[in-house]
Design a protein around this nucleic acid. Sequence first.
DNA 1: GAGTTTGAAACT
DNA 2: CAGTTTCAAACTC
Length: 328
Amino acid sequence: MDPEAAPPPPSSPPLESNPEDRVEAPAEAGKEAERSAEPASVEEMNNSEDAGDKKRSEDGGEGEGCRPCSCKKSRCLKLYCICFSTGTYCSELCGCQQCFNKLTYKEEVLSARKELQLRNKFSPSSKALRSSEVGQEVGDETKKSPGSALVKRGCTCKKSSCLKKYCDCYQSGIGCTIYCKCEDCKNVFGRKEDEEDYPIAYRSPYSKESLFLQDHPDDIGGHIIAQPLSQLQPPPWCLKRPVENGIMDVPTSYADYRYPRDKQLQPKHEKVYSISKCIEVMNAMTELSKNEKSLAPDVFLEPSNREIFLSLSADIRMMWLRRKLQNL
DNA sequence: GAGTTTGAAACT
DNA sequence: CAGTTTCAAACTC
């Protein structure tokens, strides 16, 4: 068979069905009201919806929040498809071909999901975590703790040393864990082998025994939560309580966190939230004027300011810093 | 942009 | 369950 040659919409079940089975109009044809006219064929559909000149913007469409895919052969009905794997429909942002992961083909999509669920495959994969929104449309299971799904699955990198985006953990900005089966792991966000080596401040607050077994609002399953190095942000759980005298307090809810407090942070804090790092990040903020940049170091004299500054997301960071500058 | 590499998913 | 193939994304040139 030639999947390139206008393969039919998948009959039920779509995933393993014979692609040569020609399928008539999509079952959810009624929903086609959204469109002015239903394409007569897949090819037409793709021509109309997946045209090469389609715009890729940050959001929009049915698959809002879905990271655009560009599947060619999977018809976006397999886990290869990032949109499908995250439980979202493909959108006009996607560059996929022969896509059936659309509301138009809801039945096919649901059928594909169901089949995977039967095989216990349709839980949010690591890919789901790459998406800005997870579990928009998938089952409750997905919504519960998507992060833990990644954690419990872990990565199995062999050649990338968990230093490239091939690694799900790395791509998600989290460290590898005991659940990972990676080889030669050098994940900069934390490594499974030598947990003792990476900064305590960057470790999960969970004890190893209880790791992944607890739910927490910010939990992504006990993984070390971190941002890409370029952003130099500490894990969010470090920010649960304000910094006092340069020592980051441990959240009360993490009372069972076993790492002794005296080992925590005092020296690490200075290192992680150093003035130089703040300035480094600030220098990259092109929107800041020279005048603002000259004043900002005064804000960074305060350790708590440094921590807040480095912890904030880029857009908020700017607002926060400007407010601080005004208050100087 | 084309070709290669990589790891996950699918298949046998 | 292990090995192989397929797939799409990441990466390199």
